[in-house]
């Protein structure tokens, strides 16, 4: 397992929030917080409009500022798939990572530690898909190894026009949105 990432097809996403509900249920996300969310971007003026819907979460960046700024090393890059995770026991809840993340992906869990999307690593290590990817009713979401040129995610990125969120932030995010 080299580098795990996601490809999300914005043409198929209808903003149903099944991914949000699935994540909440799978990961016991506390009330009032979310590990993933739906964003909508409307461009143009009536009647020439363009709506882009994106399902967003931690981008498990290649250059993660949340890891660099963590004083205890709680925020770290996991060996398996190079997923960015938080060690709950080491986290002191200082919120430096919340401030450093350009995507607003993190929140403080009521139990005191910084929390965010884990790419459902507990499922992935068992050969399953992340919960959000598994439930998407329009099959808009894809997950896999970005370092494998033959993986579905690699092939989609090679074949279709795509964008990442905040490319100027220098984070090299690992979630690619298909146009």
């Amino acid at each position: 397992m080299a580098r795990l990432g996601m490809v999300i097809d914005t043409r198929r996403c209808v903003g149903c929030m099944d991914c949000v509900v699935a994540c909440k249920t799978e990961n016991d996300v506390p009330d009032g917080h979310c590990r993933d969310w739906i964003s909508q971007r409307l461009e143009g003026t009536m009647p020439s409009l363009r709506l882009t819907i994106t399902s967003e979460r931690c981008n498990h960046c290649d250059v993660p500022p949340c890891v660099t700024c963590c004083p205890t090393g709680a925020s770290h890059v996991h060996d398996y798939g190079k997923v960015v995770l938080v060690d709950h026991d080491k986290c002191i809840g200082c919120k430096a990572c919340l401030a450093s993340c350009p995507y607003g992906a993190r929140f403080v869990h009521p139990d005191g530690y910084a929390d965010k999307c884990t790419f459902c690593i507990h499922r992935v290590e068992k050969g399953e898909q992340p919960a959000c990817v598994a439930v998407c009713p329009t099959h808009a979401m894809h997950f896999g190894d970005l370092d494998d040129p033959h993986s579905e995610v690699s092939r989609l990125i090679a074949a279709r026009r795509h964008f990442v969120l905040k490319p100027d932030a220098g984070t090299r995010p690992r979630i690619f949105y298909l146009e």
């Binding site: 209808v14 149903c16 929030m17 949000v20 509900v21 909440k24 249920t25 009330d31 009032g32 979310c34």
Partner: peptide
């Protein structure tokens, strides 16, 4: 897509959304 008719508005998870 989040709600169904007028019967899911009390569902805590969907209300959060």
């Amino acid at each position: 897509p989040v709600h169904t008719f007028s019967r899911t508005q009390t569902n805590p998870v969907l209300r959060d959304a």
